[in-house]
Design a protein around this nucleic acid. Structure first.
Length: 424
RNA sequence: GUGGGUGUAGCUCAGUUGGCAGAGCACUUGGUUGUGGCCCAAGUGGUCGUGGGUUCAAGUCCCAUCACUCACCCCA
């Protein structure tokens, strides 16, 4: 048997219902806050990711699905969405229409890592990106949006971590100080961090090796080196979050893996996830648009790990299934010939109708209707045909009533709509 | 890329010292001529992940391999 590729997975019908619910919730939330959907392709020129994410990152160095196209051009399955969205913003000159663009997208990403809990080679993200705004209020709003999304999905026990990475004016100063600090304690650092301590010293701060954590416990904090503008920016973000009762923690070790971040960065962590505990992460990337050939417009965005969200929401897939409202039990060829057209009519009217074609006897059909969770069963057999009627059974009350075959479609519609209307 | 754990029916899992391949659930049929859930009975269903080795005999022991899984690393 041919099996699916390692690290990939099927979203089966029973789970897909919950996925749809999460997607609908996210979509509705973003739209209410003025975001529009964008759907970039899942493949791009390799160069795009190299330049945006950074040559020295793990993603680019060893995790991308990259291969030559027929003509020899290198193309890559996207490991994240921001690069593509920035590319689209530039390529279609969206900034010319309005530099301010608030966009979201939902779709699969690909990274060739070793699979484990909460980590797949094809995984899904909900992304939100905002271009053209440098205001700290939008930083806060994005963090707020992410936390509202979790609330709406009944997710509890998440921790919002925020930090500021400064800007080209202040980060270099911090960087120099950090390098100086690290050079004095090389012997306490792991092999990775020794290598990183000059090349990418900020990454040392979030190393999880206990010895490294200890060694950098009293390392200089970026927040002490912020320039005036960055300081005010960061403070305003905090004020806004506080005003909206978003609980957060300043995490001076939060530096994040992608090269393009500056100023605000944040992560949302969930305890229930095990080692892969980040459900969302993002930050500001002023300069990225320009670096990729666009105008100097600021940007900020975040990604939510869809698969991880599915794992931590207490919502149950079973609650989102859509069982048939009406199950049609037609006994015999004549009954089937009669039932077939009006069954389709009911479906076209928006009533979930299941015309059973298994050819079982009535007992078997009733059993099947029950298992499918049908609200009503309509029985059409020889007796009913002879009388010009069909028998409608309410599966919860067991009450049965006869329906005239002459106007069976409208009669059933009225009964079903009368019952479901009060719930609106 | 590196380590640990696990692979037996559709699902969840037993399987003793190496000695006939098992249970519960699900499914099919019947008990009930055309009425579901509960109950009872019978039945269907197996490349014991795969390949090799040891043995009179392997689900069980050995080697290899694949898959899944958890962790390292990194991130959503």
């Amino acid at each position: 048997m041919i099996q699916l590729i390692r690290g990939f997975k099927d979203i089966l019908p029973t789970e897909a219902a919950l996925w749809q619910h999460i997607e609908t919730t996210a979509r509705g939330l973003f739209e209410d806050f003025g975001f529009s959907e964008i759907r970039p392709p899942v493949m791009e020129r390799t160069e795009l990711f190299k330049r945006s994410i950074g040559e020295e990152t793990d993603i680019v160095e060893k995790e991308m699905y990259t291969f030559p196209d027929r003509d020899g051009d290198l193309i890559t399955l996207r490991p994240e969405a921001t690069a593509s969205i920035v590319r689209a913003y530039i390529q279609h000159k969206l900034y010319a229409v309005d530099p301010v663009q608030k966009l979201f997208t939902i779709g699969p990403m690909f990274r060739r890592e070793r699979p484990q809990k909460g980590r797949y080679r094809q995984f899904y993200q909900i992304n939100a990106e905002v271009f053209g705004l440098d205001s700290p209020w939008i930083d806060a709003q994005l963090i707020f949006l992410a936390s509202v999304l979790f609330q709406r999905l009944a997710v509890r026990d998440v921790a919002v971590h925020v930090n500021s990475l400064g800007c080209p004016a202040c980060r270099p100063v911090f960087r120099e100080n950090l390098i100086a600090y690290l050079s004095g304690r090389q012997e306490h650092l792991c092999e990775n961090c020794r290598r990183r301590s000059t090349r990418n010293p900020l990454r040392v701060l979030d190393c999880k090796v206990p010895a490294c954590r200890e060694a950098v416990a009293d390392a200089p904090a970026i927040t002490d080196y912020l320039c005036g503008e960055c300081r005010v920016h960061f403070e305003t973000v905090q004020t806004a979050l506080g005003d909206q009762q978003v609980a957060f923690k300043i995490d001076k070790r939060l530096v994040r893996g992608l090269d393009y971040y500056n100023r605000t960065t944040f992560e949302i962590l969930a305890g229930a996830l095990g080692a892969q505990n980040a459900v969302a992460g993002g930050g500001r990337y002023n300069g990225l648009v320009e670096m990729l050939g666009g105008p100097p417009q600021p940007g900020i965005g975040f990604a939510v790990g869809f698969d991880r969200l599915v794992e931590i929401t207490p919502l149950k897939a079973a609650d989102f299934q859509k069982p048939p409202v009406l199950f049609v039990a037609a006994l015999g060829d004549q009954a089937m010939a009669k039932a077939y057209p009006w069954t389709a009519e009911l479906s076209l009217c928006g009533i979930r109708t299941e015309l059973d074609l298994t050819g079982k006897n009535l007992k078997g059909l009733m059993k099947r209707a029950d298992r499918l969770g049908a609200t009503y069963v309509i029985i059409l057999g020889e007796n009913e045909l002879a009388a010009g009627k069909a028998m409608l059974r309410d599966m919860t009350t067991k009450a049965q009533q006869e329906i005239e075959l002459s106007n069976v479609v409208t009669a059933i519609q009225e009964i079903i709509k009368a019952k479901s209307a009060p719930r609106e």
